[in-house]
């Protein structure tokens, strides 16, 4: 599926550019994006190091385990294939909490840590596991209590009430999260039935 999406994005772009007679945009866009991608990762290096360093301290002290124990009833329902005491559970909780608080740059490192934990349990290393799919379904549709960036933009254009969009944002995200988690549950159940 991903191979096809990637191929369509790239080739349809080149064909449309040729059709419009401005093929030169392709070169410029491709080279600039390649450069930007490395820059994104380089920006991540420091942030990742900082947060995973702090997380290691919390983990060594047992804080992450305590957090995971607190939310265990919910987590074992969402992630039945992950042992309740597995460190991935703690990382997933940290990632989702950071997302909810709008701490995007802390969320990514915790999320990668969670993925590493889930990968340890993955029987087919190149293929996404059920638990990973559930985690990313939650992650891509996760609620942010305060969408700070867009509120800033609204304020900069002299909005009468820059924060009036917070309520609708939370409700719309709740709707998309419900659909994401429900679909994930249905996919998992279908796969389980096929295996049996």
């Amino acid at each position: 599926m991903l191979n096809l999406i990637w191929l369509v994005l790239l080739t349809s772009g080149i064909i449309v550019a040729a059709w419009h007679g401005n093929i030169e945009v392709v070169t410029e866009a491709a080279l600039k994006a390649a450069h930007d991608a490395v820059e994104v990762c380089m920006n991540l290096v420091g942030i990742m190091a900082l947060w995973l360093g702090i997380m290691k301290i919390a983990e060594s002290g047992g804080l992450i385990k305590a957090l995971a124990r607190l939310l265990r009833p919910l987590m074992i329902r969402l992630f039945p294939s992950v042992p309740p005491h597995h460190p991935a559970m703690g990382a997933i909780i940290l990632n989702l909490s950071a997302n909810v608080l709008g701490l995007g740059n802390a969320a990514t490192p915790f999320g990668m840590k969670a993925m590493q934990g889930l990968q340890e349990l993955n029987p087919h290393p190149g293929v996404a596991s059920d638990a990973m799919c559930t985690f990313l379904a939650l992650n891509t549709s996760c609620i942010t209590l305060l969408p700070a960036t867009i509120i800033g933009v609204r304020a900069s254009f002299n909005s009468v009430n820059p924060t009036e969009i917070v309520g609708p944002c939370i409700l719309a995200t709740a709707a998309s999260m419900t659909v994401g988690v429900t679909l994930d549950y249905l996919f998992r159940r279908r796969n389980r039935q096929r295996r049996e």
């Binding site: 994005l9 790239l10 349809s12 080149i14 449309v16 866009a29 491709a30 994006a33």
Partner: peptide, 12 residues
């Protein structure tokens, strides 16, 4: 990012 950027910049 390259595929998405080409898709966007080309008008596709």
């Amino acid at each position: 990012m390259v595929a998405i950027s080409v898709f966007r910049a080309s008008g596709a």
